[in-house]
């Protein structure tokens, strides 16, 4: 059973439609006990980082989500849900769940690059885990103004599982252990997005 965290995210309906299409067993919930009882958790996400964290705090979900991840159970964050896995966001200076040691920043607003980034962007990835069977440089649908830098001045971060560019390189996907995050919307990225979700559904419990 997959628990989909219900925190008022704008894409909850779309994620649910994709899970139904794939025949997944899931439950939509904002109850800590139900999340902890699930085999896997999906944190959807369209919205704003601080509001999302305040909602999780108001439902006492922050510690349970951390425990869930620490127990090594599969967790997938989508778009804002992916940001929430990190340590900190520039979006209203917000402390996040801190499951993966990275930060979330605002895209530079340059001449040639529009912000928000809206549209399909090719992703370089390892081909492993959730990207199993997904073609290299295949495009996914993004809609975001904030991004996760995939590297510092010297090294790529080991958790940057997919990389793409929008004026700067950014982490299109993150992965550490069984924690996964997709900056894009797999539920809106056609057959390749559905493949990625199916890979998550089929991960061993």
């Amino acid at each position: 059973m997959i628990a989909v965290v219900d925190y008022g995210a704008g894409n909850l309906t779309s994620v649910v439609n994709a899970l139904k299409h794939l025949g997944a067993r899931f439950r939509i919930s904002a109850e800590a006990a139900e999340l902890m009882a699930a085999n896997k958790v999906i944190i959807p996400g369209v919205g704003e980082a601080r509001q999302a964290m305040e909602f999780l705090a108001s439902k006492s979900l922050i510690e349970p989500l951390k425990e869930f991840a620490a127990a090594g159970k599969p967790l997938l964050g989508i778009c804002l849900g992916c940001h929430l896995l990190m340590e900190h966001s520039e979006e209203r200076d917000t402390a996040l769940l801190g499951l993966i040691p990275g930060r979330v920043r605002l895209f530079p607003n340059g001449e040639a690059f529009k912000v928000p980034q809206i549209g399909w962007n090719p992703v370089r990835h390892s081909g492993a885990g959730l990207f199993k069977g997904v073609p290299q440089n295949c495009s996914f649908y993004f809609a975001n103004s904030y991004y996760i830098p995939p590297a510092d001045s010297e090294n790529n971060y080991p958790w940057a599982a997919g990389i793409s560019e929008h004026s700067v390189p950014f982490a299109a996907a993150v992965n550490q252990g069984r924690i996964w995050g997709a900056q894009f919307h797999p539920e809106k990225s056609g057959k390749d997005g559905l493949r990625l979700l199916r890979n998550f559904i089929e991960l061993e419990d």
Binding site: S14, N17, A18, Y141, K188, S189, G190, G193, L194
Partner: peptide, 8 residues
């Protein structure tokens, strides 16, 4: 439509 297509 939302149940049928998986694009924005």
């Amino acid at each position: 439509v939302a149940r049928t297509v998986f694009i924005p």
